[in-house]
Computed example of a mutant assay.
Amino acid sequence: MRITQGTFSFLPDLTDEEIRLQIDYALSQGWACSVEFTDDPHPRNTYWEMWGLPMFDLRDAAGAMQEVRACRTTYPDHYIKVNAFDSTRGFETMRMSFIVNRPAVEPGFRLTRTEDRSRIQRYSTTSYASNAPEGQRYGAKG
């Protein structure tokens, strides 16, 4: 199952050159970029781990690409995304977010249905990867 979160998630994976072009576009709009990673891509997990600090003063995509490569080297079996946000109004508004790294195998999610009072059906999703301990979910050996 391919995780589809953020901009471009239904397209084939972006090449590094395509990623650089998207970062260039974000910077041309005056947006700040950041890099985040996780091994738990549940749709409600909106707060991924930050890789470094947001790059508010970045003017060239090469700096963000350097951070993407460093994060990939450290966490090759994690999901990694680039965020671009606009802080011109005094608060951060997400303008673009896209995945730039995925584990080789994406096991997907299990849908669990339970019956509640008055035969009400409740549904929840759980990542198959979350059966393994954090840091060992996508092939990393502990």
Rank of each mutant, 00 (worst) to 15 (best):
V105C: 09
I80G: 05
L53K: 13
G108Y: 08
H78K: 02
T7R: 05
R95A: 04
T38V: 10
R119V: 09
L27W: 03
R113V: 15
M1I: 08
R119Q: 14
A132E: 07
W51N: 05
P12Y: 08
D116E: 13
G139R: 13
A129P: 09
K81S: 08
G30N: 04
P103F: 00
D16N: 09
T73C: 02
E18V: 03
G30R: 11
D86W: 02
E67H: 09
E106S: 03
E67F: 02
V105P: 03
L14H: 11
R59N: 14
D57P: 06
N83G: 02
T114Q: 06
P76N: 03
K81G: 03
M1W: 08
P107S: 07
F91W: 15
Q66E: 15
D16Q: 07
F91N: 07
E18D: 10
D13F: 02
I23M: 05
Y128T: 06
R137D: 03
D24G: 01
A104C: 00
P103H: 14
A132F: 15
L11S: 07
R137F: 09
G63T: 07
T126I: 05
E49Q: 12
R110F: 02
A32E: 04
E67L: 05
H78W: 09
M96A: 04
L111D: 11
T74A: 08
S124V: 11
R44P: 01
G90N: 09
R117D: 08
R44L: 02
R95I: 03
S9Y: 01
I23F: 09
E36S: 13
E134C: 04
L53E: 12
G6W: 01
G30T: 06
F98D: 03
V68M: 08
C71E: 11
R122M: 13
W51H: 10
G6Q: 00
F37Q: 11
I3A: 11
R69F: 10
A61W: 14
A62C: 11
A132K: 15
S87E: 13
A132D: 07
S28Y: 07
G108L: 09
Q136R: 12
Q136H: 12
E67Q: 15
T93Y: 12
S28Q: 13
F8L: 05
Q136E: 14
R122C: 02
G52S: 13
D13G: 01
F10P: 00
R110A: 12
S124T: 15
S87D: 02
T73P: 00
I19S: 11
A62I: 15
R69E: 14
P43L: 12
Q121F: 07
T88A: 11
P76G: 04
A70R: 08
T74F: 08
R72A: 00
A70L: 10
Q29D: 01
A26R: 10
G139L: 01
T7A: 13
A140L: 05
G139K: 09
E92G: 05
T112W: 05
Y128E: 03
T114K: 13
G142S: 01
T4A: 06
F56E: 15
P76H: 12
F85N: 00
H78N: 06
W31V: 00
W31E: 04
D24K: 11
T114A: 11
E115D: 03
E18W: 12
T7D: 09
S9G: 01
R110S: 10
N45V: 08
D40R: 12
A84R: 04
F37S: 06
P107D: 09
A84Y: 02
T46S: 11
Y79G: 06
T4C: 04
M65H: 07
M55R: 15
